[in-house]
Design a protein around this nucleic acid. Sequence first.
DNA 1: CCCATATATCTTGATGTCAAGAGACTTCAT
DNA 2: ATGAAGTCTCTTGACATCAAGATATATGGG
Lengths: 165, 165
Amino acid sequence: MEDEVDRLVAAWRRERPDLDVEPLEVLSRVSRLARHLDRARRLAFAEHSLEPWEFDVLTSLRRAGAPYQLSPGQLLTQTLVTSGTMTNRIDRLAQKGLVERLPDPTDRRGVLVRLTPEGQDRADEALAGLLAQERAILGELTDRQRAELASLLRQLTAPFDNVPG
Amino acid sequence: MEDEVDRLVAAWRRERPDLDVEPLEVLSRVSRLARHLDRARRLAFAEHSLEPWEFDVLTSLRRAGAPYQLSPGQLLTQTLVTSGTMTNRIDRLAQKGLVERLPDPTDRRGVLVRLTPEGQDRADEALAGLLAQERAILGELTDRQRAELASLLRQLTAPFDNVPG
DNA sequence: CCCATATATCTTGATGTCAAGAGACTTCAT
DNA sequence: ATGAAGTCTCTTGACATCAAGATATATGGG
């Protein structure tokens, strides 16, 4: 079946027949698929009244394991946002009762952000919903194809994930 | 080589051994790779003093073929932004002399946005730079692997691209 | 002990985006 | 013709984000 990238590539080949636009076949599909996934996830999370950014913060804490707490600094390295954004996010999550701020007992400059029991439940529910949706999106592929895709994608992401930047 | 998603999946398997998180192996990699690509593209475009959104608009017009003009409405279906955003983008591109607004001769409500000669040059230069960068990112893969990846990704994107939404 | 430097978090101001709606014009049924 | 509904673009107001800097605390060399 044809997709938007086929049309995009065809347009470039018509307008710029001198250029080799083959890289777009892979990387434009990655970007466009990510956009579609963002929208789909937003819908899935909305069923649990969570925004994507809320899911990111709550699940970062959830994955940390009991007692489900991290410093704002650790959270911002995990979620790749700036400190101003993280302050704002913690404020709103605390107001909704999903996390709470605790003084760091070992550093008086510091704060610890801890998942409340309700925050933990919401994170767990939303994760289950997300996985159900993702299984549906991947439904067309065989196990063999999923493994192949994961492996090829890992080859592309590993260089980014294993440098300081 | 290990990547961030391997670590993410390992954390979930430790904290939620009851869940099958295998879908993340594919779809989290897609999202994370897209984030990396966004950053890389921003850098590539910066060498031509273009923002990613400027590239999107200019190349949409470029792909339309001579005389390189589209209505704001056509531009926003291509770039998936709202009309308010598009008005703002056209304003700024016109101010920089990369596009110009013309009255639509067939509909007095309408406007046509046309690429200026400078806008066309900038779009062409930035596209060449982008393709060079993308070839470097894909450098690790064989032709066979790229084709395989493109084909698998097309299977995932086609359902999104061939429905009204 | 003291000061310079580093670290952790929060605050401020600017920006780009979106959602909703306004204004101008067109289209179509009557 | 005429009025209602549709279409196209732009305006407005709210919001999340970022970059830069402020505040408070910690750390280590002299």
